[in-house]
Amino acid sequence: MRKTLGLLFLFSFLAASLVGFSAYCQEDISFVGDSAFTERMRPSVPFLHDDHNEMANIEDCNECHHVWEDGKKLEWDSSEDKECSECHLSQESGDSDMDLIKAYHNMCKECHIGQKAGPVQCSECHIK
C-alpha cells in the first residue's frame, strides 16, 4: 500500500508539472536566419553575433563562415558574404533541408561541446 501511494504521488506531481509552467521570453535579440528556412518547425535561435564572438573569443570570421574545397577547409578564405544554404543546400550537392539543419547543428553543437560552453540541447537554442 505504501509503495502504491508513493507511486501515486510521483505520478500526480509529474502531471501537475506539465501544466504548471509557461515559457519565458527574451528581449532585444536577433536570430540565426537563413532564407532557405521558409517553414519553421522550431522557434528561431536567438543569436547575438558580436556578443557571442566576444564571449567565445572568436576573431577569425571563417571559424564559422568557412569555405571547403576538396574536403579541406581553406585557411584564408571565408564566406560571410553568403548564406549557409548557398552551399549546404545547393543544387549540386543534392542536399535536403535536413542537411542544412544538420550543418547548423553540427556547427554550433560540436564547438559548444568542444569548448564546454554554450547551449547544446534542443530547448537551449530553440527557445519558445
Partner: peptide
C-alpha cells in the same frame, strides 16, 4: 514532453 515544451529545468529534463 517537458523539455520540448521548455518548462522549468528543461535542460535537466533533457
Amino acid at each position: 514532453f517537458w523539455t520540448y515544451h521548455q518548462w522549468p529545468e528543461s535542460t535537466f529534463m533533457g
